[in-house]
């Protein structure tokens, strides 16, 4: 899987960036979603993939028996997933509000509203 995932990550980044560069606000938000998938996978893969057990100490044991997955990137990603949910929600609300105020979701037209 180490051979395939870098390509998956690369494609996700490429697609995310393309969507971020759209003028339509909604497309930008979808790009944001793709970007967070890409970044989480990047952290996950860069820390090393292992098909082994989760980093949970068995009830009968005192210590984690290797091999096991690395818990640290998992903790990082867990927060990142939840935060990106918050960001997406906030961005959606902002998009709605901006659309109501400016009557457009074209970012180029919105730029003149704060003048």
């Amino acid at each position: 899987m180490e051979v395939v995932l870098p390509f998956v990550i690369g494609s996700l980044y490429a697609m995310a960036i393309y969507m971020l560069l759209r003028r339509s606000l909604v497309k930008l938000l979808i790009g944001l979603g793709l970007l967070s998938h890409a970044s989480n996978l990047l952290i996950f893969t860069a820390a090393g993939l292992t098909r082994s057990k989760a980093p949970v100490i068995a009830l009968t044991a005192d210590q984690l028996q290797p091999p096991h997955a690395d818990p640290l990137p998992q903790a990082l990603i867990l927060t990142a997933i939840v935060i990106s949910f918050g960001v997406t929600a906030f961005a959606l609300a902002l998009a709605y509000r901006a659309y109501r105020s400016a009557d457009t979701d074209d970012l180029d037209q919105m730029k003149s509203t704060d003048a």
Binding site: P6, I9, Y13, A14, A16, A46
Partner: peptide, 19 residues
């Protein structure tokens, strides 16, 4: 934009391999 996106994606792929 496609070009920018593809370059970035390619770079990220390389980056993951190296990292």
């Amino acid at each position: 934009d496609v070009v920018i996106a593809l370059i970035t994606g390619g770079l990220m792929t390389t980056f993951v391999f190296v990292a």
